[in-house]
Design a binder for these strands. Structure first.
Length: 299
DNA sequence: AAGCTTTGCAACCGCGTCTTC
DNA sequence: AGAAGACGCGGTTGCAAAGCT
């Protein structure tokens, strides 16, 4: 028992040190990005194989865009692919060179939280709302599935944009959720908009609770937002919108940066023969890949 | 300037799948 | 065939930095 406890204690967790990174990089140089468990069994690091793999994939791998914000194009790709694939972050990441599944996941999570906050701010006057962004953890995000469909009816009271007649559209909460996420990309801020439009958007509550009139929040979207929401079904939705950033054509239908490489689900395992060829695993990588591996600064 | 809140991200965990023996 | 171990993925958590009051 004591032995087991001692063994447990040997496993190190928490932030990685530069020395550990160096050991890990050396291991990958020598054996390739595999056999993670052997790193610990050989006594090289007190980390689990999983932890080593994660560190390599998310931080040490060459050509990663570490510390680089998602560009407008990348955002667009993520949004589009998320709607297509769902939360298949690894799959989505294959379309974004230099991005990891963790990056995509965190990016999406941030956006969701931001939206939750925006919606909450917009509806803060709606005392009937039970939506609480404080509890909008990721569990909240994933609970949007079982909410009521929402109905948006636009009755423009101002000559604004292209809306000239009454439009009544019904969307699922997921649709509005997703599309509302796009609005900031259009240069449209949901916050601080004068709510002069004629109608309200009745948004389903994102919480887990059951159908209940009290769960509804009245979200007074800005005219531009309403206009966009009213056009979700338009196949030329993206064409209608001008680029938010003059330098980039934001709303062309997204194309993958690269076709995702049909990478094998798992890395090839090492045969006994290959084991002695130090470089055999490096054939998968550019010759200078390790020159690009910057030593990670320790916190 | 200090305290509080929000945000971004690194890392961990649990679980499902695949491979090896 | 099936058990055990390794790997990969998605969800979640914790913390430091940034922003706000």
């Amino acid at each position: 028992m004591r032995k087991m406890e001692a063994k447990k204690e040997e496993i190190k967790k928490g932030p990685w040190k530069a020395e550990e990174d160096e050991v890990l990089i050396n291991h990958v140089k020598r054996y390739g990005p595999r056999d993670w468990s052997s790193i610990r069994s050989k006594g090289l690091l007190q980390r689990t194989g999983k932890s080593c793999r994660l560190r390599w994939v998310n931080k040490l791998r060459p050509n990663l865009k570490n510390g680089c914000k998602f560009s407008a194009d990348e955002e667009r790709v993520v949004i589009e692919l998320q709607s297509e694939f769902g939360n298949k972050w690894a799959r989505i990441a294959t379309y974004l060179p230099g991005r990891t599944d963790n990056d995509v996941k965190n990016f999406w999570s941030s956006r969701q939280k931001r939206l939750a906050r925006i919606l909450h701010n917009s509806s803060s006057d709606a005392s009937t709302s039970s939506f609480n962004p404080k509890s909008s953890s990721s569990s909240h995000r994933s609970k949007g599935k079982n909410v009521k469909p929402i109905r948006q009816s636009c009755k423009p009271t101002q000559g604004f944009g292209l809306v000239e007649e009454e439009v009544t559209v019904s969307y699922s909460s997921d649709q509005v959720h997703d599309e509302a996420l796009r609005l900031p990309d259009l240069g449209i801020k949901l916050e601080h908009q004068p709510f002069t439009f004629g109608t309200d958007l009745v948004l389903a509550d994102f919480s887990d609770s059951h159908d209940d009139a009290n769960q509804q929040a009245i979200i007074p979207f800005s005219p531009e937002s309403r206009e966009l929401l009213a056009r979700l079904d338009d196949p030329f939705y993206y064409d209608i919108l001008g680029p938010a950033d003059s330098s980039e054509p934001l709303f062309a239908l997204p194309q993958p940066f690269f076709e995702p490489s049909p990478a094998p689900r798992r890395c090839r395992h090492v045969s006994k023969d290959e084991e002695h060829d130090d470089d055999v695993f490096l054939h998968d990588f550019p010759a200078d890949m390790f020159d690009q591996v910057d030593p990670i600064r320790s916190p």
